[in-house]
Design a protein around this nucleic acid. Sequence first.
DNA 1: ACTAAGGCTGAATCACAAG
DNA 2: ACTTGTGATTCAGCCTTAG
Lengths: 379, 379
Amino acid sequence: MRIVSAAELRRSKSSADQSATWLNSIIKGDCVAALEALPANSVDTVFADPPYNLQLGGDLSRPDQSKVDACDDHWDQFDTFKAYDDFTRAWLLAVRRVLKPNGTIWVIGSYHNIFRVGTILQDMQFWILNDIVWRKTNPMPNFRGRRFTNAHETMIWASRDQDAKQYTFNYDAMKMANDDVQMRSDWVFPICNGGERLRGADGKKVHPTQKPEALLHRVLLSSTQPGDVVLDPFFGTGTTGAVAKRLGRHFVGIEREQDYIDAASARIEGIRPEPIAQLVVTEGKKALPRVAFGALIETGYIAVGDVLQDSKKRWQATVRLDGSLDCNGETASIHRMGAKVQELDACNGWTFWHVDKGDGFLPIDDLRRQYREKLGAAA
Amino acid sequence: MRIVSAAELRRSKSSADQSATWLNSIIKGDCVAALEALPANSVDTVFADPPYNLQLGGDLSRPDQSKVDACDDHWDQFDTFKAYDDFTRAWLLAVRRVLKPNGTIWVIGSYHNIFRVGTILQDMQFWILNDIVWRKTNPMPNFRGRRFTNAHETMIWASRDQDAKQYTFNYDAMKMANDDVQMRSDWVFPICNGGERLRGADGKKVHPTQKPEALLHRVLLSSTQPGDVVLDPFFGTGTTGAVAKRLGRHFVGIEREQDYIDAASARIEGIRPEPIAQLVVTEGKKALPRVAFGALIETGYIAVGDVLQDSKKRWQATVRLDGSLDCNGETASIHRMGAKVQELDACNGWTFWHVDKGDGFLPIDDLRRQYREKLGAAA
DNA sequence: ACTAAGGCTGAATCACAAG
DNA sequence: ACTTGTGATTCAGCCTTAG
């Protein structure tokens, strides 16, 4: 595990292969300074678990009078909302610079801080794609009986800009992982506990807020591709790095505390990546090569003059040389013509139009599939 | 159903029974103007379902090209985040004035607006008690396959001030309603559909975002008492009013659109309140009359000189005439002595100390219960 | 060996009244 | 506004110890 400082990183900026300095490394130092030492547009996805600014009062006792081990670390202390907002804007601004135009960012938080994070993200022109609720199977109860059990945390998933439409979302992989129905915005996972929880020699937890690997697994599987660069500016004990390595993604972690760096480093060293073949996820039609209707004419799947009809044979149109259809003297693409005859705004011509070939009356989408299979075999 | 304007309301301000003008009424008009016509500190709980500031570019179509009946009403359009923030601050400020010091507010929203609402609530010194996730059993799918199914909405529950500790939370009623475990921050309900959904003569839904009554039922049951005043500044078709009336709470609705007022008015007229007896909810021990330990001595349940022991008989103490305990020459109350022998900060002496009576070795809390039952029988 | 019982703990903005 | 005393309050999961 390579551990570098922001200063070293800046010196290496002129080197030919500067990425070798920081890829799959932990950068020790302040988050903003470290981010400023990274090249612009170099990161595909950011996962950030910033301080929550809990603002806890006195001690909290359980009904048996034992004390709750609160998250009272110095890094979670902010004097005012304004101080927290300034901190948040600073690191988000630095993150925005290193993020690729089609990159996305995840931020996790609780009601103490997530509203402020969300507002600042929107103000900075990030475009929220979803808010995801992590429902905990085993949250800490409310001991005083004065509120509802705080049983969830919230993640915001956002693209860098409103018009960034090419971000990665492995829709079909998510659907596959969710028993063939769309993955929802509420996810259920237990909190990090048991063997996964890193503990020191004294048996105490190394980090007060270690996240479960299952959570990061779904995050990275849904929104990154193998070989992508995943940045975590609040690396902690390195859950993001561990899961990224296992899933064949590159990671960059930024962390100030040496204890956390030591734990993360040892942890990630022990991770073995999944075999490449198993990293391939289900892909939908969107990832398939686009096929122009005209290509089917060029290759003989469809002949000029063929008559296309809808499944119930209510309408018919004739194929022209340029791939347009002729219907009662009007010409248009397969999609526009389908829409026109049905008097709709739009229509998927591939599934609407059918053709009578030797094998029967079939949608032209079947011919497209045959064409693609032949393409794949040739490659 | 009484329907009044903000102007009428202002004129009635000097009348002896001004509340008769607005209680269980719909105020027609702008939300801020109407709120300013209401007396300060007059509302126990606010439920607000403000415009969501949905940023829908163009129309949204399903895969079969039918149109999604999107929420594109003019009242849901805000040009910029700043305009939405100004609007939000204005109505929250007006709400704050009419809210009682120990009142609470609920605001529901989606990721389009809830982060801004949460930030402004915090900036205005409201104190967030919980964020509640409404998980929809039947959300609208994501038709484009570019995001996770947006399957939840978020509610923020907040008190007026950080130090307002006397807000209503019917902890035991919620626990009872949740199979005897604490109610969590994630609630599951179907969206409002079927017979509950108000539709016009044309079969179209009257309001685009009608909330399910089950959601309001839990909101009001958890955080209000019978007879409380519940204000909804964006009344719409009056779900808040309908549930409030059914549960024996008073309501005040504010609404601009006459169509919604008509629908809400007819709807609420048809509601029959639950019988008073059924409105009583489970209460915790806090609501029981306080019993001094000395009273048990006065009435003979405990005798001076009786020996009290903890459940495992590790410690023992002797009862003194004034209700204090003697343990190795030291004297203290049942609670302080229990804490002292266990070397804890605090202890509930009623459940810690046991006594051997004819019926067995029982906690003195049992004797307190017997005493209370006799008190109740006498009353 | 295995089962049962009990202990421990987790991002928590966690009481209320009387004096 | 402050201190002091009473006494109300926990779920799921893992781990250790007892049987």
